[in-house]
Design a protein around this nucleic acid. Structure first.
Lengths: 229, 229
DNA sequence: GAATCAACTTGCGCGGCGTGCAAACTTGCA
DNA sequence: TGCAAGTTTGCACGCCGCGCAAGTTGATTC
């Protein structure tokens, strides 16, 4: 009993990491769908069977990257003060993650995964899982206020929308910037996240339509977001 | 030669239908994961290989139900006037579908699928696919107005949120009403859809029922508990 | 340290999946 | 009628995902 983390736990964590590393390496080298579990196992120095002790499929192994990202997003969300509006908490939580270290793995996975149906399935699952977690977190928050009846529809609609907007921002970012992780690119990402939350906070009211010539929505919506507080 | 639909097309449609019917029947009888492609093929009177000519997996075959539902939702959406606000179009489109005939298959699939991770994966894919379609539809709509620069973020965030809210309404409905397809239950569903779109349109402004006795959502959901019984 | 037990790894086997291929069979059309 | 194009089917193959039982490794106790 030397450490808080026993040798066993360390080994497991290391193995898990080795698997995802191997999977990512192979994904880079061969492209999606062109390698097998056996390849990953060999590359990670374990048996095929052991792979399945950790992940139920190749996609699951790769999706752990997304899970990691979303988990830390959730962690940030939970750190926000309970009396803060949910939208603002979400915005702040996402903001924390728009730094190179955190975003880089996800960005790479996106670029390697894009245009591949099989893989993106697990990605969808990861985002959905995160939605459920946010629902839980928000429910706990509301449950703190005494006598309140938690409106399940409100919770689920809100959480789902927040996630959708976060995802939309990511999608647009990848479409525009590719795997570019430069500071300028990350500024764009942050702004997209802010804008998306702004749209959501303002009920998708004005921004886009037709005639209005100027206002690329970037500047317009940030203010809206601020007013909503 | 005789018909607009050739014999070939009719046969294909019939086979496709036979497959999904067989899959649903087996799902009802044995539960998710407890039957094979071979079972479906036998039950549909075709070979295992032919099954794979139509669907790439059992889940895909079952998800065709969801696809059908969402496709008709999309069709309704496209029928709305182009100058109408997107949110209103979405609300109206979803409203059209809250009738027994349309909702029944989806409801059953939900109840049979719930609590099963493997199946819900394909469901997620179906919803995601619908999101992409809505993005296309909305883009076309905006592109119709000359000189407009279509804001991709706005589009994707909005479409994703609309779908999320629709899904949230469905989830809450199933959780509360189960597979109940009575008129009263469908009224509840309609109200949930309206409320969800309302939340979205108001930027999720009135946080949570809590103290505020106002608004549609509170009344709708409380009625619901009564009727549930 | 030796004994012990729980946790983890590994090889094996098995049924099922998804697909390329080539040989039948069906439909559309001249 | 006969040919061209489209469909179904059986076969074979590699891979997947998991149960099982036998090893191996890490922690605990005396």
């Amino acid at each position: 009993m030397p450490d808080l983390l026993s040798r066993r736990e360390l080994n497991k964590a290391a193995t898990r990491q080795a698997i995802t590393d191997a999977a990512l390496t192979l994904l880079r080298a061969k492209g999606p769908g062109n390698f097998t579990v056996e390849d990953i196992a060999a590359s990670a120095g374990i048996s095929r069977r052991t792979f399945f002790n950790y992940f139920s499929s190749i996609e699951a192994a790769l999706a752990s990257v997304t899970h990691g990202f979303l988990d830390s997003a959730l962690q940030q969300f939970r750190l926000r003060p309970a009396n803060e509006p949910v939208l603002e908490s979400a915005r702040a939580a996402l903001m924390q993650l728009a730094d190179p270290m955190t975003v880089a793995p996800l960005a790479e996975l996106f670029t390697l995964t894009q245009e591949n149906a099989v893989l993106s399935r697990s990605e969808l699952e990861a985002w959905d899982h995160c939605t459920e977690e946010i629902i839980s977190a928000a429910r706990e928050r509301f449950a703190g206020t005494p006598g309140a009846v938690v409106d399940e529809l409100y919770l689920r609609a809100l959480a789902g929308s927040v996630i959708s907007c976060g995802k939309a921002a990511m999608d647009v970012w990848f479409a525009q910037c590719g795997a570019d992780l430069s500071p300028a690119s990350l500024v764009v990402l942050r702004q997209l996240l802010i804008d998306a939350m702004g749209h959501l906070g303002s009920g998708f009211g004005s921004p886009v339509p037709a005639a209005s010539p100027s206002a690329t929505s970037t500047t317009a919506t940030t203010h809206l977001n601020k007013e909503r507080l």
